[in-house]
């Protein structure tokens, strides 16, 4: 037995460590997301968020994995949401940092899973108290009925801090979960950020991202650079925006 373990390749079926949050869904999600890759709970993944969801339709999460080397992917998930994964971000030239707002359907663990180049997943997170109804409540724009007028509008700001730009992008989109009435699933599913011909990061999104997705990224840039945001929603509608990097105010 011992010999087999010693000679096993690193990426082979490591036993899943016990979940420090004791989530009832941990084993199921881990099997789907990480398959046989090694997984560890790791405080170097910083998941910054309020402890209480003031508004469970718009719950902010900021993830900083810059203490880890060679980050390939950052996955944000809320275990007990009907749509558990919110984003899957690949920072190809950008810093391994992302902020986003998500919906919370009930009290749930919210966590970041970070894949490093050696094939290991690093996980951290916390339980968040939520009133419930974030995924099963209709988007405000659906209730107001004005969503179509603004669909796909992109607003953005990029502020230079040192040699990096803090980019914030906000896209008008209902991010329908398919769980409310007869409204089918409809959401932004892909975004990428470019400086010139260089892709700095790309992201997959699911409908558990809050209505009107607002994403924060940190990218290498200089004043006067133009950053391009490209994306697509599940109906194939193209999203595109451009923003010039400005000096800090």
């Amino acid at each position: 037995m011992l010999a087999i373990f010693m000679f096993a390749p690193v990426a082979m079926a490591a036993a899943l460590p016990a979940d420090p949050l004791g989530s009832p869904m941990w084993a199921d999600h881990a099997r789907v997301l990480f398959a046989d890759a090694p997984v560890e709970f790791d405080r170097r993944v910083v998941v910054d968020m309020p402890m209480l969801a003031e508004n469970q339709r718009v719950f902010p999460v900021a993830i900083d994995a810059s203490a880890l080397p060679d980050v390939k992917r950052i996955v944000l998930l809320a275990d007990l949401n009907p749509i558990p994964v919110a984003i899957d971000y690949a920072p190809t030239g950008a810093a391994p940092v992302v902020s986003v707002r998500i919906k919370l359907d009930q009290r749930t663990p919210v966590r970041a899973a970070v894949l490093t180049g050696d094939g290991r997943w690093h996980i951290n997170g916390a339980w968040i108290d939520a009133a419930g109804g974030g995924c099963s409540a209709p988007p405000v724009s659906r209730v107001k009925g004005d969503w179509a007028e603004h669909l796909g509008e992109v607003r953005a700001r990029a502020v230079l801090v040192g040699a990096e730009a803090r980019l914030r992008v906000a896209i008008r989109h209902p991010m329908d979960t398919g769980l409310v009435g007869n409204t089918p699933l409809y959401h932004v599913e892909e975004l990428s950020v470019w400086r010139g011909e260089t892709r700095l990061g790309s992201m997959k999104l699911w409908a558990s991202v809050a209505e009107d997705p607002a994403i924060g990224l940190i990218l290498p840039a200089a004043a006067g650079d133009t950053l391009t945001i490209r994306g697509r929603d599940t109906n194939g509608r193209e999203i595109e925006g451009r923003v010039a990097v400005q000096a800090a105010p």
Partner: peptide
């Protein structure tokens, strides 16, 4: 303060960010 951020921030960003598209 944290509650107020939740109440106002999305609207303020929509108001203050320039259109990029």
């Amino acid at each position: 303060l944290q509650r107020s951020v939740s109440h106002f921030y999305p609207r303020l960003e929509a108001e203050l960010f320039p259109r990029a598209d």
